[in-house]
Amino acid sequence: MAGILGVYANLDSLLESVEELKRQNFRDLDVYSPAPRPELEEAVKPPISPVRVYTLIGGLLGATFGYWVAIWTSEYWPLVVGGKAIASWIPYTVIGFEMFVLVGSLATVAGMFINSRVPKLTLTIGFDTRFTHGDYGIFVRCTPERASAAEALLHQYGAEEVRSES
């Protein structure tokens, strides 16, 4: 979707723009920052990251697999030792734990990728390489009718450069 891109040198200008854009009902925003800043989260007020759900499910699946593979193997290929249990949960906890960590970690990263919409092998519209260097930015997705209002607002709140992207 087309929109207006604003480039900012200062963090406070960016925060004010975000707040004003939200007041004026521009909801579809991408806000850029060279480093993670807690102020951005306060201004954007996003929902809680759902990555934790991936972590939990991945961890539980991993632990289940770890115990299962050890127990199933023992039953399939039993080593009978003087009255001792063929499948013993205490040593298998090591395998369960390692699988819990492994699958949980990979699921966490998968959750981050899915929610962040990466990998993207081509950089799409609404991005400027200055955002990975030292500048801040906002990309406002809007209809052509509201584009001039968004552009004026970004200028008013201190954007150093404003351009239309489509």
Partner: peptide
Amino acid sequence: LGWRNTEAEWRHFARAYLFLAAFSTPL
């Protein structure tokens, strides 16, 4: 991976990084 430094990317990154640290500690 086409990382762009958006607020959403940083938010999910921070959460994932925290959980990876929490997994790595007992590991």
